[in-house]
Amino acid sequence: MGRPVLDVRELTKVYGEGDTEIRALDGVSLAVERGEYVAVMGSSGSGKSTLMNILGCLDVPTTGTYLLDGVDVGSLSDAQLALARNRLIGFVFQAFNLIPRTSAVANVELPLAYSGMRAAERRRRAMFSLDLVGLADRAEHEPSRLSGGQQQRVAVARALVTEPALLLADEPTGNLDSHATEDLLAVFDELNAAGRTIVLITHENEVGARADRLITLFDGRVAGDIRQEPSGRHAAAGV
């Protein structure tokens, strides 16, 4: 299957010192191959958000190595990390995190702007990406005029626009109702069917069930790693 997109070995993350020391991650090792759809589940405090932040190059582990698309992230400089976040990772957050007072299409263009692409090409790709999540007709709307589900789909479009090696989603359905959740998961299903690698964090069982592979964290360790037959995919048949 070639080089894994994501390969972490013996990752630990320790907050605080001495008596107040908390081991959020305590030796996590896992590899994700290209085209996989992985759900990471765990109760609150199991370290899944910490893992996500490290995988997204937003935080650094205390010990352990992290190879992203074959590159050792620990050895990267600040500027190289910014480049890695820009080119290799697409991030979807629980709180949507769109830039306020900025149109949907401008939000989607943002990663491309930071990668130095020309305006016309940027706009074309952003529109393509918005079309992919079914929001091309809302391109000029500002986030405050979009529903939660629409905002999250704009965020997905923004995560996709650089064609990253890895799509990371941190509780993407946490702030959505069941209908918007279904819409968003359908988008993920389509993306995975089109070959995208997706790692998402969730504590909802029906969201976890949609993935090919389910990793369970408990107390900062991998407690379970099973491949499963995804259930409830509607879009898969259509792609």
Binding site: R85, N86, S115
Partner: peptide, 16 residues
């Protein structure tokens, strides 16, 4: 601050 965080997560270099 949050906006700065978002921009950085999207790959904004320090310089930008």
């Amino acid at each position: 601050t949050r906006e700065i965080g978002i921009r950085k997560a999207l790959g904004a270099p320090r310089r930008a």
